[in-house]
Design a protein around this nucleic acid. Structure first.
Lengths: 335, 335
DNA sequence: CTGAAAGCGCTAACAC
DNA sequence: GTGTTAGCGCTTTCAG
């Protein structure tokens, strides 16, 4: 009885059907240029006829390259990261790589566990968020000998050096720029609302340093949802009624603060200036439109992908000084 | 010279170091219960000493199980999907499975290409968004013999049956429920703003049917960003100034409409009622708080994971009538 | 409870 | 251009 297409065909079956050897099938699939046109056609016909789908797992084992890249972000339910991942995935897909995704939930232990699992999968590259990985992990990654890109930060801010490659910006400088903007707009009593996580704390540090005055801060345990905005604002105003400007560590949070101001009858920016972070689409859509710090999230992902692909292609030397993609103060109506 | 931990250890190295056979190491790692405590300890010591990380690729090939599940969503830059993926990932991770993520960008060809690649990777299960896969793909998936869960829809609405398992809700009924709510609040001239994609169109169909009057609709080509809200509202009001209620196919879009109303000086719900979809955190945070259709996005992901794990565990029979997780009309201040 | 043998389905050298 | 020979690093029988 003839082999059903439903029974999974192997490469040797295709070879048999096409009247060639197994290697030729492999070559027809992976390096068609090295195969004669007629042979190629015969193989293709056999592939279609049998519904053959090459087993990439076997290929990975034999070739010692998985064509998988793993990425770890705190959560994809934050536009700021999902857009970075999206850009990364797009860049990788272009070159035939697949993306294995992990979410750490801002927890270093979960990050370590994910990395262990990914190394077991022999991923060809790894993208991490932040630079606060513990030493043991850094060592483990260096030994693994695969290219690693850390993102969303720059080295040194938390005393760490890059594990390998890096694409990000100075969170401290970003915070300072926000404060400078608000000072320049005439505000003197500043406040901060953000998640209680490393990069937000860096921004707060920069913000505070540049403010040159005590800053009232609300640090919310992640995951931060928009609906935390009203409460945070409330607590802030209770503590320091003289606040005239608040820097929200995320545009969505800032939008929540705008809604809360409306509810309390606080004029923005008249009674309270509101500044966001990220320049997400909602910053333009809000009313008043949000002043914010623009971060090119897409560039981070695309650049991380590019660096990885480069290194995976030429197995090559470590290049790469840290890539600073910077940020930009966007002034709109809310300040 | 002693083997450096940096040189990747293989299972046979561990076996050698522990003074046992290779199989025993395999068992110590995968089924520790079947191994004597002393042996187990020896193996563990050797693993630590050598920094051994099991090669899951080799394991997958030998065992014919990858312990990878793939999921395809239109985009993760939409909270509605990212939260579903997050819940799915969490459920899978619990059981030692990893998630391979694909984004189709609402494009059927890209979805097909991703599925092909995932089948090549011999994923143990697959989660899809929607039920509008073409017949050729459905056939291919049935032949692959892996469990498949379609999500965010129910069969029959677009004339399709489930490929295998299903967890979602009736988009048509959801649209109808939105219209019913608005009618009940006294509105007669209804409008719709949403993305131009299959599930939104289903909701619009249900909405229109229940409205029993012509509905002014703005269908925006995806990806829809919040900042499309103001323009859409503008066009809508220009076409039909008598509109008194608008159903936005996404809470973020609805929040954008709220901001736009504010800008135009339109009272909500006095001059225009606004209804959202999803019950994202912003629905509560908005002012006025958004009436919306609550979808349990997390339940969709968790349930999809559960169904998959069940079937992967017992290799078993197809169970599963379609799982309807339903929806709920949430009335708040905006209608 | 432990071990020896036999592959999983493919790619990487080499030959011709 | 094409084929032959060896594995990749594990898990799975099957013995003991």
């Amino acid at each position: 009885m003839p082999r059903q297409p439903s029974a999974k065909a192997r490469m040797s079956d295709v070879a048999h059907a096409a009247g060639v050897s197994l290697v030729t099938v492999s070559r027809a699939i992976n390096t068609p240029d090295l195969v004669a046109p007629d042979t190629l056609a015969a193989v293709k016909a056999a592939v279609d006829k049998l519904g053959y789908v090459p087993n990439l797992t076997a290929g990975s084992l034999a070739s010692n390259r998985s064509r998988i890249v793993a990425a770890i972000v705190p959560t994809i339910s934050n536009l700021v990261f999902s857009e970075t991942v999206e850009a990364l995935a797009q860049r990788l897909t272009q070159d035939g790589y697949q993306l294995l995704l992990g979410q750490s939930g801002y927890c270093l232990d979960r990050e370590a566990a994910l990395i262990h699992a990914f190394l077991g999968r022999r991923v060809d590259g790894l993208v991490l968020t932040g630079t606060n990985q513990p030493t043991s992990l850094r060592t483990k990654l260096r030994r693994a000998g695969i290219p690693v890109v850390q993102t969303w930060d720059l080295p040194g801010e938390d005393g760490n050096k890059a594990i390998d490659m890096l694409v990000g910006f100075s969170n401290r400088a970003a915070g300072a720029a926000a404060a400078a903007h608000l000072l320049q707009r005439g505000h003197r009593t500043l406040a901060f609302i953000g998640a209680d996580e490393p990069r937000a704390r860096e921004r707060l540090a920069g913000f505070t340093a540049a403010a040159r005055r005590e800053v009232a801060a609300e640090l919310i345990a992640p995951p931060v949802q928009v609906d935390a905005a009203a409460d945070s604002l409330h607590r802030l105003m209770a503590r320091r009624p003289d606040i005239t400007a608040v820097f929200c560590n995320n545009d969505l949070l800032a939008a929540g603060v705008l809604f809360a101001c409306q509810q309390r009858g606080l004029a923005v920016p008249g009674s309270l200036a509101v500044m966001g972070f990220g320049d997400l689409p909602i910053a333009r859509a809000a009313h008043p439109a949000l002043s914010t710090l623009r971060i090119d999230r897409t560039a981070i992902g695309a650049q991380a992908g590019r660096l990885l692909l480069e290194r995976m292609a030429q197995g090559g030397r470590k290049s790469s000084k840290p890539c600073d993609i910077g940020f930009e103060v966007i002034q709109r109506a809310s300040t």
